[in-house]
Design a protein around this nucleic acid. Structure first.
Lengths: 135, 135
DNA sequence: TCAATTCTACGAAAACCCTCGTTGACATCC
DNA sequence: GGATGTCAACGAGGGTTTTCGTAGAATTGA
């Protein structure tokens, strides 16, 4: 039966939907007040809702805030690269059987890339290979 | 009779956590009974829990089942490539600012790929480019 | 036949996620 | 001063997700 070690702890860098919406804004802008974040999200999300989510995220150590006049300015503590790495790993393992190739194939299949874009993608692989070769 | 109501409907191919765990097993194995799925997930998930999730997934048309003896055998209806495409798009937009390059860079950074793997990734790009050139 | 096992069905509890109403603090403008 | 606007805090409501207890049907084995 279930080991009762308590901790229904979530794996790190896992965000719910709304949390991700909000983190996304902070990553893009670097920081944001409640009002600023809300502006980006659209007026159909209540002010207090955004505030609450930011407070929840703060409780999870995903953001921190500083006083700015009478308001709070929130900063992301979790890096988007980290969150992205976790998310990609999850997607790769759960959906693509752990295969990066399958993942990449799906990516390029679902979106039409121009020659230049593909060139840039290719150069990312080149750089990775150089690093590999150095070892 | 104005059926207005703004669809709280979820975008297609979006799975919750547990749902994804279960779909993942079905994608890997091709199909599974409740007991089989549960074996893969580990004994810390209750039998009836797995059954319930499969029934929920069936209600969402993500799986179907056939009778097999006294048990049910479940088959995925949603393709992993479709779910993967949606998931990648979401990750790319929310976390990587819509940039496939950033996504790929993070992917190759987080995991060490061998030369052969990188070669295969490269050939995926080659194929995509050929298709592009044909147009 | 009886007991144990293995299965589905159902319902509801528990946990979590998201939302917003309300309050009170402070600031500004008249 | 009083009205108005912006802000954080708190708490609770409602929805969704995840879990499991219980019941009953079918099968197996003694």
């Amino acid at each position: 039966m279930a080991s009762e070690s308590a901790e229904p702890r979530r794996e790190p860098n896992r965000f719910t939907h709304r949390e991700l919406d909000i983190m996304s804004v902070l990553w893009r802008r670097g920081s944001g007040t409640v009002a600023e974040v809300r502006d980006v999200l659209g007026e159909d999300v209540g002010y207090t809702t955004v505030l609450k989510m930011l407070q929840i995220l703060e409780g999870k150590n995903a953001v921190r805030h500083e006083k700015e006049g009478r308001a709070h300015r929130y900063y992301p503590l979790v890096e988007s690269a980290d969150a992205g790495g976790s998310a990609l790993k999850r997607v790769m393992n759960k959906i693509f059987h752990g295969s990066a190739e399958l993942l990449l194939a799906t990516l390029v299949e679902n979106r039409e890339f121009s020659d230049e874009e593909i060139e840039r993608l290719r150069s990312i692989l080149d750089r990775a290979q150089e690093k590999e070769d150095e070892r």
